[in-house]
């Protein structure tokens, strides 16, 4: 505390952020700072992939089959142009990882937003309306919760593939994945939001709004929603890690994004075929990137959960 008093931060948005309890607890946890740094670097690299990646791995014109199966640069036959080696088509592994992380993160974020939107909306309605609506939504949630997420995502993915004509599978794959992972994850949000909505509903400000005749959906959106969003952000962070793993798993199983626009999971599946002939780097480096990304996001989520609300377990 004394330290903070001696160094008055500048006013304004950034000043308020740096002065907050949240930032204090953040700067006191070296593991969290490291996790945030790693996450930021990976997300940054993925977002600016065309400028960051040393090669453009999906431009056929720049590929040379003579460069195929080169080991990482520090090994005997390594080529300094390809830091982490090349795959069967002579693509730079580091660049495919950066582009792959881009697809993984894109699907992960989109799926989390879809699940968040659905879950918050259903949770709000369920908690605010009560009665039959509540009973039906919560029964569906119960049933869905009794099956593992990955199984539900797999089933939705399978059904969607069945519904789409075969030649559209590849171009629609990313949307199908986002849909499948998003739908499989809404329950956590809905349950939490419903719980906090039930509490907020009984407070005076909501009753006051009801008395002056504001329409229910407006009360939900404008008055209740801002007060129930805190825990949702925590669930969102942890869900991002789960969504990334789910995407990678589906892609690894061959029912996710196709090899023409691979995610980290697809890269691992492709590399898996070369494991036995000794080209381990094609699969191990994307795997390590995936593990590091998920671990960092998980650590951030754990920290955020503890820092924002000790009650939320």
């Amino acid at each position: 505390m004394a330290e903070q008093l001696r160094r008055p931060w500048p006013r304004g948005m950034i000043g308020r952020l740096l002065d907050s309890d949240l930032f204090y607890s953040f700067s006191r946890s070296p593991v969290t700072v490291l996790a945030a740094l790693v996450t930021a670097v990976m997300m940054g690299a993925a977002a600016f992939a065309p400028w960051v990646a040393p090669h453009t791995p999906f431009d056929l014109a720049t590929l040379d089959l003579l460069d195929a199966f080169l080991p990482p640069a520090w090994m005997p036959d390594g080529d300094p142009r390809y830091l982490l080696g090349t795959d069967d088509q002579g693509r730079d592994v580091l660049s495919t990882i950066i582009y792959g992380a881009r697809v993984s993160l894109l699907v992960g974020f989109a799926a989390v937003f879809l699940a968040m939107f659905l879950g918050v909306a259903l949770g709000l309605v369920s908690g605010y309306m009560g009665g039959m609506v509540d009973a039906v939504i919560m029964r569906i949630a119960d049933v869905q919760l009794s099956f593992p997420t990955i199984l539900i995502a797999l089933l939705i993915d399978g059904v969607a593939r069945g519904l789409l004509p075969r030649d559209m599978h590849e171009e629609m794959a990313i949307y199908v994945l986002i849909f499948a992972i998003g739908i499989s994850g809404w329950v956590q949000y809905a349950r939490t939001v419903r719980g906090s909505t039930l509490v907020e509903k009984r407070k005076e400000y909501v009753q006051a709004a009801q008395v002056i005749g504001i329409r229910p959906w407006l009360i939900m959106l404008r008055h209740v929603l801002p007060n129930v969003m805190g825990p949702v952000l925590v669930i969102g962070t942890i869900h991002l890690a789960i969504a990334i793993i789910t995407e990678a798993t589906l892609s690894f199983l061959g029912v996710g994004v196709p090899a023409t626009q691979p995610s980290l999971g697809t890269l691992i599946r492709i590399g898996n075929d070369f494991l036995f002939s000794g080209e381990w780097w094609i699969t191990i480096f994307p795997g390590a990137a995936l593990a590091i990304l998920v671990l960092s996001v998980n650590l951030l989520g754990d920290w955020l959960r503890d820092a924002l609300n000790p009650k939320l377990r």
């Binding site: 798993t249 199983l253 691992i268 795997g287």
Partner: peptide
């Protein structure tokens, strides 16, 4: 918990199989 199941399987295959 952070390592997906399939990655653990691949690592085991690499170590004990290959």
């Amino acid at each position: 918990v952070s390592l997906p199941t399939f990655l653990i399987g691949i690592l085991l295959i690499l170590l004990f199989g290959v």
